[in-house]
């Protein structure tokens, strides 16, 4: 196993940040920790990167214990913290050069590993890191975390605060890195990114709700989901909430994801009800459950 976590607990003064967490990540896997802020993702990252000591349980990274063999782990992993943590007063090139040097390597030696990412920021290599845009900062941070060819890469919310285009590019890069036998543990609050992982763990309040492949996780959703839309979103939501047979209602872009308590649910009944509430342009269609629906269901 590349990463193995068993029964890890960690609490701060009044908060149980992690409660009895266990999971394994296979070599070469792209594993996602999905959950809202405060789920305990960063604490878990800090334990695995040897920055914190767990209160209970134990964990290994590349078969090395995170408490006793912290020095060896620090040599062989790449870590990109949630907060942008490069030197803002150093240029792009100087940052990369610095991190290459402290890991005892050079940019040239591992250039092919970072090439895809670095070429995008190379035109700005004389610019100070503090003056880069959010997406470019993340690309630089990833380059710096990769420059020593780590076995395991820890990315704590790498796409938070990054525009959608850069987010997509970032995930394409992670997929390519995976081809190069790097195990990646990534956390994100974005459910749409979860689908891009090999396996995901849904986390909330320091607990893991479910671990599986994204495809299997959505299958666990117990009900059929319908996309409901109408001329008035607000009215639609209020009307659905007032409908006594509703099981779950979540706004989802231009639609509302709706599921019904009854097994013999008929869309015509709902349509008639909504029309009685003076809504028009009503459209009800079956749709597949998303990870977000599953998460909301599990987090209930």
């Amino acid at each position: 196993m590349s990463i193995s976590v068993s029964n890890i607990s960690k609490s701060y003064k009044n908060v149980n940040a992690l409660q009895n967490i266990s999971f394994d990540v296979k070599p070469g896997e792209l594993f996602g920790l999905i959950g809202p802020d405060g789920a305990g993702k960063t604490t878990l990252f800090r334990i695995l990167t040897t920055l914190l000591v767990p209160d209970a349980g134990h964990a290994t990274v590349t078969d090395l214990d995170v408490v006793t063999h912290y020095k060896a782990i620090r040599n062989s992993v790449g870590y990109m913290p949630g907060k942008f943590s490069l030197y803002q007063d150093l240029t792009v090139e100087e940052n990369l050069h610095f991190f290459a040097t402290i890991f005892g390597t050079t940019i040239e030696e591992n250039y092919d590993l970072i090439k895809d990412i670095y070429v995008q920021i190379e035109p700005f290599k004389k610019r100070r890191a503090g003056k880069l845009s959010g997406g470019m900062k993340q690309k630089l941070a990833l380059s710096c975390a990769l420059i020593h060819k780590p076995n395991v890469l820890f990315l704590d919310e790498p796409t938070t605060g990054v525009d959608p285009v850069s987010r997509k590019e970032f995930w394409d890069m992670l997929k390519r890195l995976q081809q190069k036998d790097i195990t990646i543990l990534v956390s994100t609050p974005y459910m749409d990114e979860a689908a891009l992982c090999d396996r995901i763990a849904l986390m909330q309040n320091g607990k893991i709700l479910e671990i599986d492949t994204p495809a299997a996780i959505v299958k666990h959703y117990p009900k059929t989901i319908y996309n409901v839309s109408s001329n008035n979103m607000y009215q639609l939501l209020e009307s659905l909430k007032a409908y006594k047979h509703h099981y779950s209602i979540y706004p989802f872009g231009e639609f509302v994801h709706y599921s019904d308590k009854r097994t013999d649910f008929n869309t015509e009944d709902l349509k008639a009800y909504l029309e009685s509430r003076n809504l028009s342009n009503i459209n009800i269609e079956k749709t597949a459950a998303t990870i977000e629906d599953t998460f909301m269901e599990l987090a209930k």
């Binding site: 920055l51 943590s85 991190f99 710096c144």
Partner: peptide, 13 residues
């Protein structure tokens, strides 16, 4: 404060 200590700690330094 800037979080770079976190990265320096997770390095062979």
């Amino acid at each position: 404060e800037l979080g770079t200590m976190e990265i320096l700690l997770v390095s062979p330094l």
